[in-house]
Design a protein around this nucleic acid. Structure first.
Length: 369
DNA sequence: TCTGGGGTCCTAGGACCC
DNA sequence: TCTGGGGTCCTAGGACCC
């Protein structure tokens, strides 16, 4: 989906169309409905806190702001941009709608979070057809049908890449954003994929990107031309081989239509860093709330966790985790809080705490309450 | 003006067992 | 006193993604 959260907000506030809009932060900057029927929106410049951008409209991105950027930093770049609070319930509702609209056309879908999916078109009637002189006319028609269905159901645009595998589809879907439809065959690799920077490969993040750059590898083509043995030397056998395969467009991962969850967690960043002793009461209260939230999530979805863990981030941004595996899976708030408390005892709390989280892993199905 | 929240997967060392 | 090879489970941290 294109700029998903921002696009959903534009449906609600159409007067913001074309303007730089940024989504992020807490509840404190709701739009206010004025007596004359217009709305007053918060500006990025008004923000104070530790939030980050979850999504920015394309107009806002022109100012150099992007998702993940701290709102205070973004305010320096685009002070007049409109700031809206994140409304996950609304985005989840639109997420369900767009996925249902796709499923009407192509039901083999892999969920990749709230605004992304992989679709397997290979067994769909017409997928292999050519239309006129276009050998890929069949899949192009399918792509257009999916886009139309999504727009009809949600009013939103999406971008689609149709290729022989998931790796290439992900890259192709981003080549023509927004409202794109990009078709790519194996033969297109040298011309369309190899000139792109290695970071476009899903799975090459900041660390691997920097390491490749240090080796003189900037583009996917350079990665494909590089000696695989040398990549194995620098990245280990698994990542080394994967890097080279990916650059050559090789990817045989199937579209996975269902997978069991592995863990469920809740975490929160405090408005100010808390001290284990001086802020003991507040810390304890939040800790209990997080345990209760995890318990609720588990119960609502019908799971219990045998491993309970905590996460702390300190004022210097160093992050530690501790976990504890029990004899039996639990999803009761009191039991989770107790196990998490045992974990907390194993952490040195001399630094001030920025973030606290509670996690349940090793999940097993449990009757929903 | 530093850096959210919810996830997955991988690695590596140690305990423990046969 | 010094020593095998294979396996599983647990814990902690880190890279990466949406």
């Amino acid at each position: 989906m294109d700029a998903f959260y921002a696009s959903v907000e534009l449906l609600r506030y159409p007067e913001l169309a074309g303007q730089p809009v940024v989504i992020g932060g807490g509840r404190r900057h709701q739009p206010v409905l004025l007596a004359d029927g217009t709305r007053r929106f918060a500006k990025l410049a008004d923000y104070a806190g530790r939030g980050v951008i979850t999504t920015a409209t394309y107009a806002a991105r022109d100012y150099g702001v992007h998702s993940g950027m701290g709102l205070m930093k973004a305010a320096a770049l685009a002070p007049q941009a409109v700031l809206l609070p994140t409304d996950f319930d609304e985005y989840r509702a639109y997420s369900r709608r767009f996925k249902a609209a796709v499923a009407e056309v192509a039901p083999v879908i892999e969920d990749r979070g709230i605004d992304e999916i992989y679709i397997d078109l290979s067994d769909l009637p017409g997928a292999q057809d050519s239309v006129g002189h276009d050998p890929f006319g069949g899949v192009r028609a399918l792509g257009l049908e999916i886009k139309n269905n999504v727009r009809r159901a949600t009013g939103l645009s999406c971008s689609i890449g149709i290729t022989p595998n998931k790796l290439l589809a992900k890259i192709a879907s981003e080549l023509d954003k927004p409202d794109g439809l990009t078709l790519l065959a194996r033969d297109d690799l040298p011309l369309r994929i190899w000139p792109l920077p290695v970071r476009r490969i899903n799975g090459i993040g900041p660390k691997a990107g920097a390491k490749l750059k240090a080796l003189g590898i900037d583009t996917i083509g350079q990665l494909a031309a590089h000696d695989p043995q040398d990549l194995v030397r620098h990245f280990g056998p698994n990542i080394g081989r994967w890097l080279h395969d990916a650059a050559c467009g090789i990817d045989d991962r199937p579209v996975v239509v269902f997978s069991e969850p592995v863990s469920m967690s809740r975490e929160t960043t405090f408005d100010r860093d808390l001290h284990a002793r001086r802020d003991r009461a507040e810390l304890g209260r939040v800790f209990t709330e997080l345990a209760e939230a995890v318990a609720q999530d588990l119960q609502r979805k019908g799971y219990a966790g045998r491993t309970i863990g905590i996460k702390l981030r300190f004022e210097d941004f160093k992050t530690v985790t501790r976990d504890l595996t029990l004899a039996d899976a639990i999803n009761d708030a009191k039991a989770i809080r107790h196990a998490a408390g045992l974990c907390l005892k194993r952490v040195d709390l001399s630094r001030r705490i920025r973030l606290l989280g509670v996690r349940a892993g090793n999940l097993a199905r449990s009757p929903a309450r």
